[in-house]
Design a protein around this nucleic acid. Structure first.
Lengths: 191, 191
DNA sequence: AACGTGTGTAAGTAATAACTAACATAACCT
DNA sequence: AGGTTATGTTAGTTATTACTTACACACGTT
């Protein structure tokens, strides 16, 4: 791995562990196994490094291409797949989600934009799925965007509690149970 | 208001706005309208002040005595009241919730306790309400604690987005709509 | 061999932060 | 009146941190 990537990796690690102010450039450099000045030769400032860390892990929502994939599934199976994919996606980007969650209100528009694009795109994907289901007559009439928020909200909140609040009442192995129960509630609530 | 309270108030305000590291003692003192050294005369260190701020606002949620209150209500009305009360409760403690979200990793134990007291008590209240409803035959059989998490998760996530992520797609005045829609989904999903 | 590029080491600067020392003032209690 | 208490003012100290300067080493290319 080249120097720049090492710095980015250590940046992600330490920013997510200690926050933007808590992580020092010295520490990041040390963790990356390079000299501090080398960090500044690659990134003009700590802030630019932070941005780079965020941007480099900014991903296209994995759920976007999901609609065609689940087109043949039943409503229940479709929702289960979406829920699972959503939780997996969050878990993969756990560190990033944590940074954004904790730094978002004191850090400027760039983070906002990225966060928006992640959440909004997911919401829209889901809302359009619901709209399709309404056209087909599978589900009743309801505000599709609110429905999407309700659905993802259940799972995001679960993820949040599980990973950050350490409310480990239900262990990781029970994720499938959670998905099943939440999806069941939602399905009966919308059909 | 006496000096100590002024310091605590400014502490809450600035810690929640800028985080523990981001808020300086000078700034807190200035905001409280006192000399910096007076702050240190009341609190031996910044960390002790932070603890005091957290502890002073740590209180039991108002939802505990809610069950008897909604005993005569319909299932739908009961859930609406609980949702509203939960959202109001979060809104009242907005600053504290924000602190907990951003500083939870640095200060595990204390923040944990508070978080637990707010969320857990609400969860239990709700779960026991569901259990009652199951006994009465109003709702179907489902895991009451998971149901409570699903229900509150929808609203917590909504609150989170509304207040911290600034996903202001729905304005504050629409809260009633959100409650109505979420409750409708949940009711149909559990009856 | 000469040069550019990427890196390291060592030392340092400037700003800021937590926290302190010393002394003054004003209010209140006995 | 005298003493205690809570506060202010001013000017520190000490530690840390983002960021820099200056120089040297190693490597590959020409």
């Amino acid at each position: 791995m080249n120097t720049k990537d090492k710095i980015l990796e250590s940046g992600l690690k330490l920013f997510s562990k200690k926050g933007y102010l808590g992580a020092t450039t010295r520490e990041i450099a040390k963790d990356a196994g390079i000299a501090e000045i080398t960090l500044f030769r690659h990134f003009p400032s700590k802030e630019k490094l932070f941005e780079a860390v965020i941007n480099i892990h900014s991903f296209l929502p994995a759920l976007k291409g999901l609609l065609p994939e689940i087109a043949g599934f039943s409503y229940e199976e479709g929702l289960k797949v979406i829920a699972k994919r959503f939780l997996d996606s969050l878990a993969e980007r756990k560190d990033l989600v944590r940074i954004m969650h904790s730094e978002i209100h004191r850090y400027n528009e760039k983070i906002h934009k990225i966060y928006h694009s992640i959440i909004n795109e997911t919401l829209k994907t889901l809302a359009s799925y619901f709209a399709d289901m309404q056209k087909k007559g599978t589900v009743r009439n309801f505000d599709t965007e609110l429905g999407a928020r309700a659905f993802l909200g259940m799972f995001f909140s679960y993820f949040d509690a599980e990973n950050f609040m350490m409310l480990r009442k239900y262990k990781r192995t029970d994720t499938d149970t959670v998905i099943k129960e939440f999806v069941a509630i939602f399905i009966k609530g919308t059909v």
